[in-house]
Amino acid sequence: MKIPKELRYTKDHEWVRVEGTVAVVGITDFAQLQLGDIVFVELPGEGAMVKAGESFTVIESVKAASDIYAPVSGKIVKVNAALADAPDLINQDPYGDGWLVAVELADGSEPDGLLDNDAYTRLAEEGQ
């Protein structure tokens, strides 16, 4: 199970990578392993506003449907359109090609409040 050092995490198993004023969001390796083969991602629209802690999309596997919660607040400026045809990108590369959305941060300091690599590793180990 991979948990990259440079990312921030939530207890709901989303990750965030800050690139300037924008946060790229995805689900963790742990989350994709729990879900199994992902079959569908209900992509939100670009321009939609999200609020930290609120569900903004649903990821479906064959036998499960999981709400995905926004780690940060802001405006969705880009969605990973490739997921429409290839939702398995999340299984193959959860931290890379399997990213979900990019959010323009309403508050640039918000990601600082998220879990770091150590804290999330402990959480994921408990969950196994």
């Binding site: 083969d37 079959v39 569908f40 479906e60």
Partner: peptide, 8 residues
């Protein structure tokens, strides 16, 4: 049966 392919 391949249920993943069916749902994708």
């Amino acid at each position: 049966l391949d249920e993943t392919a069916a749902a994708r």
